[in-house]
Simulated assay, not measured.
Amino acid sequence: MKPHNPSIREEALALLRRGVPNRVVAERLNVPRGTVGWWRHEDRRKRVEPVAPRRSLLCPICDDRPLDKAAYAYLLGLYLGDGHISHYVKHRVPSLLVTMDDAWPGLQDMAAP
């Protein structure tokens, strides 16, 4: 793979520091989006710029909302019965996978919400 011209990288960093999104920078400079993301990451690391924490809209603990205990208990039961936690490198977050058999009519429909 051919390295990018340092002037392209500097131009990208200047745009990123002004708040231009990675996608726009990548399109404008004809550079892969992943490369722009890596440049941003490295720039922040070198400048010790704090990265804003990501909050989940789905996590009541992260969003300081009350926990639906009945729904949590049901989900825990599904996990203990037919589930497991997978760590997909691509997504960088653990995922709950629950496998259900069609032999139990209605179970999948009840579990989805």
Score class of each variant (00 low, 15 high):
V98Y: 03
L29M: 09
R47Y: 00
G106Q: 08
E49D: 12
P32Y: 11
P53H: 08
R55A: 09
S7V: 13
R55K: 11
M1N: 04
I61Y: 12
N5I: 09
L97T: 14
A111I: 00
Y72C: 08
R92G: 04
L13A: 02
R40F: 02
V24N: 07
A71H: 15
P32R: 12
L75M: 07
L16A: 10
V48M: 08
H41W: 04
V20D: 07
W104N: 04
E42S: 13
L16E: 02
K46R: 15
D63L: 15
E27D: 15
P66D: 13
V48S: 09
D102C: 03
P6F: 10
R45M: 14
G106D: 09
R17E: 10
E42H: 07
G83D: 06
R28S: 14
R28H: 09
I8D: 13
R45T: 01
Y74G: 01
V25A: 00
D102K: 10
L15A: 12
D43W: 06
G106E: 09
P50H: 02
V25G: 01
L58V: 08
W39Q: 05
A14Y: 03
Y88Q: 11
G37E: 08
R18W: 00
A103Q: 11
V25S: 07
P60W: 06
I61C: 07
R17P: 00
R17N: 15
H4K: 11
